[in-house]
Design a protein around this nucleic acid. Structure first.
Lengths: 336, 336
DNA sequence: ATTAGCACTAAATACTTGACAGTGCTAATA
DNA sequence: TATTAGCACTGTCAAGTATTTAGTGCTAAT
């Protein structure tokens, strides 16, 4: 459907535009080796590509800029992953080799590196405990009326909940409840806590007590829920201000607002099939209408699942960032 | 030293400038009730105030703007705390009354509210465990070679450290070390852990073991250190972009960089004597040269100490924000 | 002590102009 | 038939020039 020269033109325009952030004109193109035709010829191809929806103009007499469709075509079929990112792989290896970093820290560090190298913002989503199992539930009395419940999963995730012990209730009583819960919930999937509690509690006496102390049990359940919510971390927020497309305070404000209000999490939903590239208007939230979000899922040997994402302008160095993310994801899958 | 009219002039200029963000001219001033003099008269006072360092000009023929000295004089002796913030006190009360919020969450929520009301960024510093005492140290074995050490303080702060158990070492051995440490460190101030360890470990056998397993002990000590580092939280970062003085991307980038790199913590050092107002060049870091940072310390009944801060342009609504912060701090001191 | 009046100033705004980098189209060419 | 040269046309940008505006300081009058 596209002539081989048209393909070359599209590829060249994406690459040129990504590099310079200037609409690409026919004269510029004809200077490239692989496009040694006259500007007039290339203009014809460009007009065709525009008709087909791969290119856009910023105004009547400007050069061309890739459209969303154009970028997608580039990412999916034209792009040859540049080997000029190879040099950064050892830096990533280095991070994953460090013994003083926890897994989370290592992922975080490597994404921070990517953010520095590319000036895009990065997000690490993960550490969700839903697929982990309860290992231990423990009660610790502190002062007078003040105690702590600690929960530990098999993957080493720790969550704690401070509670104020209601008047007229002794520590030992609460401890008893916690111990019972500990027994009932041992090895239970975090995501299945509520069901398990409902089905396993047959003993009437306990049931009575738990119902009686509903507030207490609720506090514990709340802590479980916190455990199950996705933890995430953003790096390089300020790097993105280096991008020429983020010189407009309004845009920046919208983006940072979305980050602060956690709206940003809506667009990093991922399935496990692999990399997802969402360009411009494909992103649900308004603040990201001019952004591309690339998300790559990962899973660790211990069974934790998560994703790493990059946020940048649609004019993104796809051929650089995609291999980088995939390399990191692969590295995560390997550790521990 | 200042005539009573000069004082009125200074006060009016600060208030007018804070409101409009425009240099204030003599004509504008003379429209105010309390300054029913001719512009020429006021010009003389303004010139005097400039000579004394309370005012500045942006260019030869512009109106006047308060200097750092001028703002300070205003904050310390001129300002009458407006009662137009009273209306927001009940909103704060409301937050502190909510049962579903932990203390940290309540502080956070209330500062978030302040940030929304004022469009400045806010920071909550606190929860530092240095002044807390070790309540419990516990070892939990997870899988094969993978274990967890949990530390709890008397104030209910929990810190955990995952460790990989070195080849050839049994869980029980590590557990023994942790139990010994638990005994030694019980009730020990977090800030004094290292000394205590040094002085209390006389038993040669234990000492040998600890030296032998230096890496393990180091891991634990590292976790203690993490415990002692100040925890902080920033809200309303993006609100600050509404301020006209933050329309310059370079400035924004510098500020957000400082936040991301945690440099910002340098300027919220506080003593316990009370409110601190640092204006413009008084702030150590470059990114805050045009900002005012107001910090108010707090302490809770359970003995935790921290501070709440507000970041905004030097042109800040001092008379609004200061009572707000003091009110919140007072509220924190009351709870639990 | 206060004020009116006036010459002066820097900044902001609007307008004009010319250069520039591109386009699409038509006619000539290999 | 595919390519190219040539040309009229278009939107953007930067520089230069007036014009307006909101303020000042100073002097002389009240």
């Amino acid at each position: 459907m596209l002539s081989s020269r048209q393909i070359l033109v599209l590829k060249a325009i994406v690459e040129e535009y990504v590099k310079t952030n200037e609409p690409v004109g026919s004269r510029t193109l004809s200077k490239r080796e692989e496009l040694a035709f006259s500007p007039a010829t290339l203009r014809n191809d460009m007009a065709d590509l525009e008709d087909l929806g791969f290119l856009e103009k910023t105004h009547t007499s400007s050069g061309r800029v890739p459209s969303v469709k154009g970028y997608h075509y580039y990412v999916e079929t034209l792009m040859n992953e540049k080997n000029d990112v190879d040099y950064s792989f050892p830096m990533i290896d280095e991070i994953f080799k460090r013994q003083d970093l926890s897994k989370e820290q290592a992922i975080h560090e490597s994404m921070s590196l990517v953010s520095q190298l590319t000036n895009y913002a990065s997000l690490v989503l993960g550490n969700s405990a839903t697929s982990q199992r309860i290992k231990k539930l423990q009660f610790i009395g502190l002062q007078e009326n003040f105690a702590l419940i600690i929960m530990v999963t098999d993957a080493g995730h720790v969550e704690s909940k401070k509670i104020i012990v209601p008047e007229g209730l002794r520590f030992s009583e609460i401890e008893k409840v916690v111990n019972i819960l500990d027994e009932i919930l041992h090895n239970c999937l975090v995501s299945e806590i509520e069901e398990t509690m409902r089905s396993k509690i047959n003993d009437e006496e306990i049931m009575d007590f738990i119902l009686y102390r509903e507030d207490l049990v609720n506090a514990i359940v709340q802590a479980f829920q916190e455990m199950a919510t996705d933890k995430y971390h953003i790096t390089g927020q300020s790097n993105i201000l280096r991008q020429p497309e983020f010189q407009d305070i309004e845009k920046v404000k919208d983006l940072f607002d979305a980050i602060e209000k956690k709206e940003i999490l809506k667009v990093v939903k991922y399935d496990e099939t692999g990399i997802s590239v969402r360009i411009g208007s494909e992103n649900e939230i308004r603040a990201l209408q001019d952004c591309t979000v690339i998300t790559v899922p990962y899973s660790t040997q211990s069974g934790e699942k998560g994703a790493i994402s990059i946020f940048g302008p649609t004019r993104m160095e796809y051929s650089k960032i995609i291999p980088l993310l995939e390399y990191i994801s692969k590295n995560i899958n390997k550790i521990l």
